[in-house]
Amino acid sequence: MFEQLFPNVQIDDMITATNETLFMTFFSVLGTFIFGLLLGLLLYLTGPGGIWQNKVANWITAAFVNVFRAIPFIILILLLFPFTDFLVGTIRGPSAALPALIIGGAPFYARLVEIALKEVDKGVIEAAKAMGAKYRTIIFKVLLPESTPALISGLTVTAIALISYTAVAGVIGAGGLGDFAYFYGFQRNSFDVVFVCTVLIVIIVFIFQFIGDFASRKLDKR
């Protein structure tokens, strides 16, 4: 039945491609989370009214974020070829996609982090100051815990964007389901392969969405 409907689909290849996509998604989400959080914190803390209010630092961070967010992802990959080559030692395969994915994803996530932090009640920050809290305490014990649900739902949105970026990265040889759909499906006129790849990507997206929504809801005690 399956073989009749999808004559060109090789289960083994599909599993490999899925693994590659999951690999790229997982590590790019991780990297994006770390760098995006740092950038977002920097944007917020150096911004107007922030505890490290600093026009210059804020301007530089914002410029970095805006520029990298403005570059279309496919062009970003091409632009980063030399950097990737230097860092990873190759420009092909799932690992080689990570620098571009993270540099593309982090500025996007940084803006969502900034928005999440702005939602934290100013009164609570003030209460912490009135208790004699250090800046470090305010960041790690007030700002981040109080914005966790929003940080997680922002990460979910970013992760889903990253999954579609992995498919784009596939087209220039990063591997994964996008790569597979293009080279083995589209170029060989095997639309059953394209179809199965699509279904798998959609399933991955749904799983991320589900986990993200669940975690965000669970942690929201408001």
């Binding site: 009164g123 609570v124 004699g132 305490t137 815990p145």
Partner: peptide, 27 residues
Amino acid sequence: MGMIFQHFNLLWSRTVEDNIAFPLEIA
């Protein structure tokens, strides 16, 4: 110096106990 506020300014992510423990953690 303790301070209390019109809108309470509690951390919603912490339980009652953990809210009360916060200034102790700071100290």
